[in-house]
Simulated assay, not measured.
Amino acid sequence: MRLRPDQLVEALDRGLAPLYVLSGDEPLQLGEAADAIRMAARDRGYGLRELFHVEPGFSWSTFLEAGDSVPLFGDRRILDLRLNAKPDKEGAAALLRYLDRPPADAILIVILPRLSRDELNTAWARAADRVGVIVQVWPLQGRELVAWLDRRMNRLGLLADQSGLRLLAARVEGNLLAAAQEIEKLHILYGAGRIEDEQILAAVCDCARYDVFDLTTAMLEGHTLRTLRILYGLEGEGVAPPVVLWAITRELRSLAVVQKDTTRGLPMDGVLARLRIFDKRKEAFARAAKRLDRDGVLDAIRLCCRVDRVAKGLEPGNPWLGLADVCLRIATSH
């Protein structure tokens, strides 16, 4: 049986399989999946654990002997098998022999790098799929990463908007270990409850002198020189381009909504309140909505999409030049 990592805990609640194969290159998900299996096994009386590291010269016969042996006091066991590569011919044969008659008093956890489609079609992998559970762990990107961050924050009692989750995703760039640390930091700093975008930015951004919200405010207010000074300062301090792009794109999308709704006759104060735009941002948005042409704002948003592709390496170019182009389009338009 094959499961996704997010399906594993529910499956463990229903019962234990004699074998779990955890395959992938993302260390946090692999480690937490193995921890969940061990905890579920210990809760059901599997009190002993034997660890095997498969390295050059590893004796597969030792592993098979451990599977065949019976503990002195009849204790249930967890056999933890770690591989740095796919099993060689001897290893595949040993796993096949083990899976042919898995011991009733043991659970085997096999952790190894990502298995290709061809490797999943080998005899030992097909036997593992038939006898136990295979969990393929993949790096998370896009919506999957945002959903993972949301679940991780909820686990600690934290609640963030989608915009804040996207900011955090841009900051960690798919590194789930870094993401887990940032979420722990948010919990320590602010405790359980709603976390605003500004709080996430303050926690995950290391900019001591410059702030991306100072940048967007200067841009919306039309202060060209200040906008460029802050942008170059953020670049010099090592702030990641996706973090700056997130802030600019968020403000431009909100500005486009403000212009659309006020054109339809809705009151400016009500629109800004609905979008949770207050204080200094409120004044900047109100002036920018009147100063800027909406088509120009939409063009700037489309340019942000291209900068995003450049920042991800999907198109050639310098993301900082693209960010400067977006900022100048908004700051200098009248």
Rank of each mutant, 00 (worst) to 15 (best):
R2L: 10
A218C: 05
L177Q: 13
T262Q: 09
S116P: 06
A17T: 12
A160C: 09
M39F: 11
D100R: 11
S59R: 11
A218G: 00
G265L: 04
D269R: 10
C304D: 00
E32M: 03
E237S: 01
T263K: 15
V310K: 03
F73E: 05
R38W: 00
E315R: 11
R152C: 12
G15V: 08
L314T: 02
F58P: 07
D293K: 11
A93M: 06
N318W: 04
Y190I: 10
A36F: 01
I37C: 03
V137P: 00
W320N: 00
G31Q: 15
K89G: 13
R171K: 13
Q7F: 04
R155F: 12
L51T: 15
R151K: 14
Q162I: 13
A203G: 09
T217H: 14
I134M: 03
D269C: 03
R76G: 05
P18W: 02
K290Y: 05
R101E: 14
T62Q: 12
V54D: 00
P102R: 01
A33I: 13
P139F: 00
A179F: 11
V133E: 08
D25R: 04
I277R: 08
P5S: 06
A240E: 09
R194F: 04
Q181K: 10
R4Q: 15
R151W: 06
A324G: 09
I195A: 08
F52V: 07
M39P: 04
I134V: 15
